[in-house]
Write a protein that binds this DNA or RNA. Structure first.
Lengths: 333, 333
DNA sequence: TAGCACAATGTAATCGTTTGCGCAAGTGGT
DNA sequence: ACCACTTGCGCAAACGATTACATTGTGCTA
């Protein structure tokens, strides 16, 4: 209540708001002494700018939004950390939103960010953005996708790994270890990351002249429960695979739980390889062989890309940045 | 860039801004037909409110800030999830900030939220808030602490477990299992949660008439590295403890790593009990005996408390809400 | 001594919404 | 025919900052 405004300072000092504003922002043309008087009174009276007013006037919020499906997944948490680092350095604020894997929430978050006049957004989409993203296009606000490419948008900016190549490579690794009965639990294939991984897997098998068995290839949900359920399905088969590739960490955790629950051994009975199953504790057993996205770097690059667009340091052209995944070894294969 | 404003709609329809605003907000006194014409044109022309202007005028952003030390710690991630659920239901937006365990960043985040006119904030403080929190007091913006109580503030609102009681209880559990040589690695004791847990531990020991051994009690940092280092110190002692209590999940992971690295067995050589070492994957070995804070519930309650204060449903009085921790069993003890 | 450059400051418009107050026209009861 | 309401709408002032465009005063030059 009664927060101090520039107007108050101006009146108290018998100067105009112009002078106060100029003094506070150091934007020249104010006598040194006046400037100091303003500064001092501002300090004493605990003046703080009202960002709303400022942003409204300047049409610039210096705020970047990021929407992720699951903030408690360390993969996304690390992306956020990366983005936040850049934001902090460059004087931006990062607004984090969680879509809870729900396209409707994703849409809602994007809408809210748009209304709040975010300067740009980073989206790890789960599919629900078409309509709102057009709003960003119209408003000419930079949007960068991470992890997933949008299912529809025509041209877009992207920071991610090459999921096709990664899946191909991971499958090759499994093959090289001598496995030939290989299956996969994919994420929802309407999400590009899941689909590309699926395709990489299929093509790697076929290039290795290994037939793929449809029973061993299942479409799941990027959740622990789904991993468990699908793996249970696979394990109940007459003919079981010798190795399974999991499209994501949660799927892997669920799947492994299912395997153990059936009293089976990893990797003797079923071997496991996964994506992004990186272990922050160092205590997960088995240690999962996993191909990981460089999460923090993805966050950093995406954020940098937004800021570049904002400062005009980047041409308006569509840009896809592909980063290299890294392998973490383990005893699950 | 040519974003549609109410003014544009008004001109196009030959009505006043008042009418447009009323129609869009459904705040009465507009003919049904006019209202529909406005709505339709708004839709067609992709009108969106400018939250900045709206909030500025209303002096209300419907935005709640939350500042946590480490977003990639699942404990905090779950708090955020809880808070976000409530916010979403009540039409608020949650702004998540990460302080990275750094008091300066914490201060910065609080400052930014204040300037952005957040309607309220939730803080899991690591100690750097004194100055800025006064700003909130002056502006009469509700602040709710979680996890940690502020080191200085006189009266404050809090949602947390009773850390003293919890530590006392956990220690009792360890004692009841027959351990008498018990040590603890605490967090930074200038943080209240760490200090209270330390005191609960000490008093539980003394009430059980077990002498405490200063060599086994160490002050660490709530990080994996610190857990590792301090545990290494403890293990290098002539006389080792039979059980160690870890004040936090990260400390526990680091400590366990150290124990294994020394070729020791858990719980035979050293037993382990911890706080908040809850395992999302179900694959962490050993399964850690842990007393956990109900993270999502903390987030929900804190958020609810803010909103209650905002809507005047709560008296201005200081409120401390203590929730019950829950035990997860394991084989580490 | 007029003219000029430049420093220091002020006036007022602007960003996009909301809303108190006022006004005109319509409705219905007596 | 009059009064009391209600309905539908508009004017213009906020909210708090920034800034283009004056305006004033000062010292210096020609």
């Amino acid at each position: 209540m009664g927060n101090v405004r520039q107007k108050d300072i101006a009146e108290r000092l018998g100067v105009s708001m112009t002078t106060v504003s100029r003094a506070l922002n150091g934007s020249g043309r104010v006598k040194k002494e006046t400037c100091q008087r303003v500064m001092q009174l501002a300090q004493e009276s605990h003046y703080m700018v009202n960002s709303l007013a400022r942003s409204l006037r300047l049409s610039d919020t210096r705020t970047i939004g990021i929407v992720v499906p699951d903030i408690s997944n360390s993969f996304f948490a690390n992306i956020i950390k990366g983005a936040q680092g850049i934001c902090h350095d460059r004087g931006y604020m990062l607004m984090v939103c969680n879509s809870d894997e729900n396209p409707l929430y994703e849409e809602g978050a994007l809408m809210a960010l748009l209304e709040k006049q975010a300067s740009g957004v980073i989206i790890a989409s789960v599919g629900g953005s078409r309509e709102t993203v057009n709003g960003y296009r119209r408003a000419n606000i930079p949007v960068v996708y991470i992890d997933n490419v949008p299912s529809d948008a025509a041209d877009y900016d992207l920071v991610s790994i090459d999921n096709y190549k990664a899946a191909y490579a991971l499958t090759q690794i499994v093959v090289k270890r001598g496995y030939r009965k290989i299956g996969m639990i994919t994420g929802p294939r309407k999400q590009s990351s899941a689909r590309m991984r699926y395709e990489g897997f299929i093509n790697a098998l076929s290039d290795a002249e290994i037939p793929n068995n449809a029973d061993w290839i299942r479409e799941g949900e990027f959740t622990l429960e789904s991993g468990y359920a699908e793996m249970m399905g696979v394990l109940s088969l007459e003919r079981r695979p010798a190795a399974m590739i999991l499209s994501n960490n949660k799927l892997a955790y669920g799947a492994i739980r299912a395997i153990y629950e059936q009293g089976l051994k990893i990797p003797e009975d079923v071997a496991i390889a996964s994506f992004d199953a990186i272990d922050g504790t160092g205590l997960v057993r088995p240690q999962i062989v996993s191909l990981n996205q460089p999460a923090e770097e993805i966050g950093r690059r995406a954020c940098q890309m937004i800021i570049d667009k904002l400062t005009g340091e980047s041409s308006g052209q569509e840009r896809h940045v592909f980063l290299e995944p890294f392998l973490s070894e383990g005893d699950s294969l």
